[in-house]
Amino acid sequence: MSGGLRRALVALAVLAVLAAMPFALGEYRTTLLLPVFGYAIALLGINLLFGYGGLVSFGHAMFLAIGAYAAAVSGTVLRLASFEAALGLGVLAALAVAIPVGALCARYTKIFFGMLTLAFGMLFHSFLFRLYDITGGDQGLRVRRPTLLGFEFEDLDKTEFLIGPFYWYCLALAALLAWLMWRLVHSPFGLMLRAQRDNPRKAEYLGVEVARTRFIAFLVSAAYGAVGGAMLAVPTGLADPELAYWTHSGTLIFMTVLGGFAHFAGPLLGALTYVLLQDQLMTWTPYWRLVLGVVLALIVLGCPQGLMGLPALLRARFRPSATARPVPAE
């Protein structure tokens, strides 16, 4: 069986299992899976920058917040009930912010890029936090229940709506966006992005417009972040400024590394693992951040390829002939 066909079958199997989850899991566990989809989409965007582009953004939570606030504004202020309108508004708003920010940040790499994105993210946070009249300040804005593709699902209560239509809607959207991202990273653009990551000067010689490539990747990841943010805001019913805080950006990078930034599916696995792990830790101890910090440190030190890289690492440990060379995302 060819690699492509096998991958497609694995993806379909995973999709089928996820689609069946609302029947197999109870109410609580199904609602627990909802943020996984939102995060998975946002992380796909972040990994385009991080895994494929070599750029670590510590301000990406800003775009999730933009998506969430767009969902709130479109429902309460603009009176647009449709979730598609909220997503569209979120993406447009994210692009409107990402164009100036990205134009400025795309000139930098590495630590400078991280610091700059952090600065812009916190600028946005202070905007959300301080301009009480527009953004609701620390109270945030309420997100109303949207209609999906024009259907209102009036006969379902909130939980039924979330674990029913909304769940499958998110799954389908996540699958669609994952497929688009797969096409993007395997396009000539994806190749240029990886080329500038591995050797920007050589890529420039070969005709890659390095800054423009980074800029476009930034825009795409901003749009993915906004879609993810809007999806996160519907179950909680709230868009609040903490979504834009820099530690949330750090958490997003954490999830990506947890899953494995060198693999296309790493962010998806990372989102799932992180959400389940955090939920479990929070029931055990009030000091769950401490445990998460230890987990992050252990991953960075011992298994920088994340969970997706674990099999290769173990193979290398038990069969010295196989090498577990760190491989960047292909």
């Binding site: 530690t247 990078i253 910090g293 230890v294 992050l296 960075v300």
Partner: peptide, 9 residues
């Protein structure tokens, strides 16, 4: 990221 882990801890 390692310093971020320190922040959390």
């Amino acid at each position: 990221l390692l310093t971020f882990a320190l922040v959390l801890m």
